[in-house]
Simulated assay, not measured.
Amino acid sequence: MTGKLILVRHGETEGNVAQLLDTKVPGLPLTERGAAQAKAFGESLSSVPVALFCSAALRARQTAGYIEAATGVPATVLENLQEVQAGDWEGWRGAAAHESFQRIYRAWHDGDLDAEVPGGESGHEVLARFLPAIEQLRQRYLTPEAIAAQSNPGDVLLVNHGAAIRLVTRNLADGVTPPFTTDNRLDNTETVELVPLADGRWECVRWGQLTPPFGTKEAHTPDDPMG
């Protein structure tokens, strides 16, 4: 099945290893392992995407570069699609820092988009950055008319960030709600795959290693909550 929007989490970074809240652009680079993950992801794609985009963060650009090398599809940077901004907590590390962030992040998934990271963003502000860009990609590449006009139809790949991907999917797609969206994190280079529906919504057909129905699932081994 082609004609999907595939949100790809970047490869492992030095910040992931150190458990840092690393959200400012450009941010930290990929580790050697992260580069290998990105290279393997690009080489594992079963079909060539119709378009490839990434956030301006260094880790996303590097990951997209490996996908570009494997597929021949040029990577384009989309501004304002960086990770959820940690604000005053930028650079914090460890369990206490992550729990501080998670209190706000869980509130967003539960519908309190007014909650705000100190010195950072509210849920409303994150979605205001992302949703118009997602809609533009849909209109340009994923409507029936756009797909019919493509000589080689394919998926649209957007290399992005763990917390942002989960929040955006929570608000775009039916059938993905908390606690599933807060308990099931994405590992590096895992994906969320979205199929556009006729009513303007999206259907989530993959969340990491999981496929519908998305009910109470065993959570992944805990990793960094964002990046």
Rank of each mutant, 00 (worst) to 15 (best):
E32F: 02
G123D: 00
R140T: 15
A70I: 13
A95L: 04
D183H: 13
L131I: 11
K4M: 11
S151Q: 10
T221S: 00
Q37H: 07
R61K: 11
A219V: 03
E43S: 14
L131F: 05
L30W: 04
G175F: 00
D223E: 11
Y141M: 05
G215H: 08
P153R: 05
E83S: 10
D223Q: 09
L131G: 08
C54K: 00
V126W: 05
F214P: 13
T31S: 03
N16F: 04
L81M: 13
A219I: 01
R33A: 12
E14D: 06
Q209P: 05
R61L: 03
A86F: 02
A69V: 01
G154A: 09
G87L: 02
A128H: 07
R103M: 12
G11D: 14
A133Q: 13
E116M: 01
D199P: 12
E121G: 01
T143C: 15
T216M: 10
V176H: 09
V168N: 00
V48P: 11
A97W: 11
T13I: 07
D88Y: 01
A18C: 01
I104D: 10
C54L: 00
S46L: 13
D199I: 06
G34H: 03
S44Q: 08
Y141Q: 06
D174T: 06
A36H: 12
Q139W: 09
A35M: 06
G154N: 08
F41R: 10
A18Q: 09
E14G: 04
R33Q: 13
D155M: 13
P225S: 14
L131W: 06
E99K: 05
D187F: 01
G111K: 07
V156T: 15
S44D: 11
L78R: 12
A128D: 15
R9V: 02
L7C: 07
A57M: 05
A128E: 14
A70W: 10
L167V: 07
Y105E: 08
G91H: 02
P118I: 01
H109Y: 06
L157G: 14
F41Q: 09
A164W: 02
W89Q: 01
E68C: 14
D112S: 00
T31P: 00
G123Y: 00
V25D: 02
R170F: 04
G123A: 00
A18H: 02
T63F: 05
D183S: 12
A69S: 08
V48A: 13
A60I: 01
L194M: 13
H10N: 14
E14T: 08
L142K: 06
A57E: 03
V176T: 12
E43T: 12
P196Q: 11
A86M: 03
S44W: 06
P178K: 06
S100Q: 09
R129W: 04
R93M: 03
T23Q: 02
R206P: 03
D110N: 15
E116K: 06
A56N: 10
Q209C: 05
K4N: 15
L167E: 10
V126D: 13
L167N: 10
E116F: 03
F214T: 13
E90R: 02
L81G: 06
A57S: 12
Q136G: 08
R140K: 08
T182D: 13
Q136K: 11
Q19I: 02
A96V: 06
R140Q: 12
F41V: 09
H98M: 07
I134Y: 00
A69Y: 01
G87A: 05
A51K: 09
A70T: 14
